[in-house]
Design a protein around this nucleic acid. Structure first.
Lengths: 111, 111
DNA sequence: CTATGATGCCTACCGTTTCTAGGTATCACT
DNA sequence: AGTGATACCTAGAAACGGTAGGCATCATAG
């Protein structure tokens, strides 16, 4: 039993990644940890989901990447939100809110 | 411009269909209308999404189907929630709530 | 009376996304 | 020396929703 980690719904990962990066530059592995941490262990992003997503997001110009060495002396690829990415985050958050609202309405329906 | 109809997130359609049917038996076309109506026109389910979804859902035993004639004299295929479908609806609603909560937590994070 | 739009069903195919499962390398600790 | 965490990546599968088509009936507008 245990393990209540839910799968993501398709379309939510980008928003989560962008949100993570809005708190400051971060490398891939760190994004996974940050999302897990911020969600109180409820969300667990798989590496196989993250890295392709980061690639897509970078292609779209929402983040920029840069190799660097961090405190621990290890190399990692740091991602940073671009201006366009910040806008995209807002857009995606607005869509999310809309969807949650719409679904809430449907669910509130009674006979 | 106009058209603020949002695309669904993958994984939400089943819940919406099951919820619609929890309000009473209904045929496919009617499900689309009910969802649109309940959501204040925010959600628009395409026929090409609905019918395959209904088929899947029926295969899983969550709904049962029956051809019938309704008031207007037209034939239509009426779907009805099964006991298993009602349980599934609860499960999916719980997952949805969990996900919304988790994402809310992530979004509340501040620097 | 004919054309159009709404109602009602269906299928084939496409694109996107996430996951599983694998691979590589470094580092700390046992 | 081995294990687990950190850190990156890819290939392939599976699932799902949308687009775009097709078909038939009915009411209504022109």
């Amino acid at each position: 039993m245990a393990k209540a980690k839910a799968d993501l719904l398709q379309g939510t990962l980008d928003m989560l990644i962008l949100k993570s990066l809005s708190l400051g530059e971060l490398h891939g592995y760190g994004i996974i940890q940050r999302i897990r941490q911020l969600s109180d262990e409820m969300l667990n992003v798989e590496q196989g989901s993250l890295y392709p997503a980061l690639y897509r997001i970078e292609q779209k110009g929402w983040v920029s990447a840069r190799w660097d060495v961090h405190d621990t002396g290890r190399e990692a690829k740091f991602y940073k939100l671009t201006r366009s990415g910040r806008k995209q985050l807002e857009t995606q958050e607005a869509s999310w809110d809309r969807l949650v609202l719409a679904i809430t309405k449907v669910r509130q329906a009674t006979t």
